[in-house]
């Protein structure tokens, strides 16, 4: 862990003499394995709250349409809201280039072999970004429906995207992501006539995993349903604080 984080805490712990002759001791640790990540996530969250930034963590399988949704949103709401984007990918800056083309502030994180973003990476990305007060920060996670589930980045809401070409059993096969998200976007509904995808079944499956999950159906290509997503987004933007 790097020096700038200063995340090493000195929790008290119990020592018990187990065996006088061999000087063995039991140390009661009782520490969450992701404790370091969670501390940094809380730190990010505190920063976002202080600046009234709505941070959203976008997760999905590769190719479900995370970047496409961002491209549409950034262009359509350009005059109404202030945005910044963090792009997480194993390799390349392709997605960041696509976001850059919309004239939005963007930072690319390449995770190399890493299959998910963690709070530490986001902390450092944010440090270089000079985010503005009352803005929306989209964090596009690495395309992977499993690994990013357990890593809190400090986001306010987690948005899971599935597309109709992926099959309607996804929420049951990868329940953790649906369990830990607050909004599920079903993308590419323009393709519904061409694929066997039972949208009611997928919604029911997603609700079985997480009864609080909100669901929005849309198409980034045809634009159908985007209004619902924009309204959701606007409803989450907290009123700017009056100083």
């Amino acid at each position: 862990m790097c020096a700038t984080c200063g995340c090493g805490t000195d929790d008290s712990h119990d020592l018990k003499e187990l065996d006088h002759h061999h000087h063995k001791k039991i140390v009661d640790v009782e520490k969450d394995v992701l404790h370091e990540n969670n501390l940094l996530a809380q730190r990010n969250r505190g920063y976002f709250e202080a600046k009234n930034i709505l941070a959203l963590n976008l997760v999905s399988s590769p190719g479900s349409g995370k970047t496409s949704l961002l491209e549409r949103t950034l262009i359509d709401l350009k005059n109404e809201l202030d945005f910044a984007v963090i792009e997480g990918d194993q390799q390349t800056s392709n997605d960041a280039d696509r976001i850059h083309a919309t004239e939005t502030k963007v930072t690319q994180i390449n995770t190399g072999k890493g299959c998910h973003l963690d709070a530490h990476m986001v902390l450092h990305a944010v440090q270089g970004m000079k985010l503005t007060q009352n803005s929306i920060l989209f964090i596009e996670n690495v395309g992977n429906l499993i690994c990013p589930a357990m890593f809190d980045l400090g986001e306010k809401e987690r948005v899971v995207i599935i597309s109709v070409t992926e099959g309607d059993d996804k929420p049951l096969k990868y329940p953790d992501m649906f369990y830990s998200s607050t909004l599920c976007i079903i993308n590419k509904i323009d393709l519904l006539p061409y694929v066997p995808f039972d949208i009611e079944k997928v919604k029911a499956n997603a609700k079985k995993v997480n009864h609080k999950l909100e669901i929005i159906e849309l198409s980034c290509t045809s634009g159908e349903g985007l209004e619902l997503w924009y309204n959701w987004l606007k409803s989450k933007v907290l009123a700017p604080e009056i100083a």
Binding site: M1, G8, D10, H13, L15, K25, V27, V29, K31, V33, L34, H35, E36, N37, G114, C115, H116, D118, I146, C147, P148, M150, F151
Partner: peptide, 23 residues
């Protein structure tokens, strides 16, 4: 394979806790 990150975190915790206990 987030399990590798999990194991790395466990090693990190084990290292810190054992040095705190002077072991």
């Amino acid at each position: 394979m987030h399990e590798l990150s999990v194991v790395m975190s466990i090693i990190d915790i084990a290292q810190k806790e054992s040095s705190k206990a002077n072991a």
